[in-house]
Amino acid sequence: MSTTAVLHAEWIKIKSLRGTLLPLLAVFGATLAVTVLAFATVGRAEADNADAEPVFDAFYALNFGQIAALGFGTTAVSSEYVTGALRISLAAVPRRGLFYAAKTAVVGAAALLVGLATSFAAFLAGQAFLGEHAIGLGHPGALRACVGGGLYLALMALLATGLTTLLRSGVAVLSLLIPFLLIVSFVVGDVAGGAAQFLPDRAGQQILHEDPAGALGAWQGLAVTAAWTAAALLAGWWALRRRDA
């Protein structure tokens, strides 16, 4: 089969579903909105704090964007399972490896593009409110954080894609991942050093720091997140290949 044709078909499927397209746009929209809101109100006060970390603080709103990224990665796959549309899809593209690779590639590419636009836009928009506290892309670690932030969002979307293929339910994945990210990692992560820093979100967010503390460096942390994502995608592939549709 033609790989380009299957990629194109997967893109049409994503773009023709409001439920999938909206979370993708929300990655950008929510991150930017929260950034503007936060920086316009408390931006200067926060930047004035003694423990302020100008690069990392610039990506505060990414916490919201990543929820949307998970939503995008989830709905792109769960739309195949809610009604049994997977059978129609696999009847059209019976080579399951090709089908899965194409879907993953389109989700990954879309999330990466939107993710990069989001992290750069959030960084620049936030700084615009900071006056004398503002830093530029030339600040140490700033450019790395912008690129890394985009990669991080794409990896989170793909993590959800893999898990949704494995569990065949968007509800299951979102009710697993969102509390996990918001509560377990957000709350417990700050307290515990040790193992918590290897959780997918904690590890990946190392790249947002100017000078990452802990066991993992900036790119090492992102690599750990990539490993989580790869594991989820492989588990999804194993399930899709094995199961009756």
Partner: peptide, 23 residues
């Protein structure tokens, strides 16, 4: 196989277009 399988939120034309493009 099952008329209910097509995703409800897509338009009829988009549903068919994705199928046509893939093949």
């Amino acid at each position: 196989l099952d008329a209910q399988a097509a995703h409800g939120s897509r338009t009829a034309r988009d549903h068919l277009r994705a199928l046509a493009v893939s093949n």
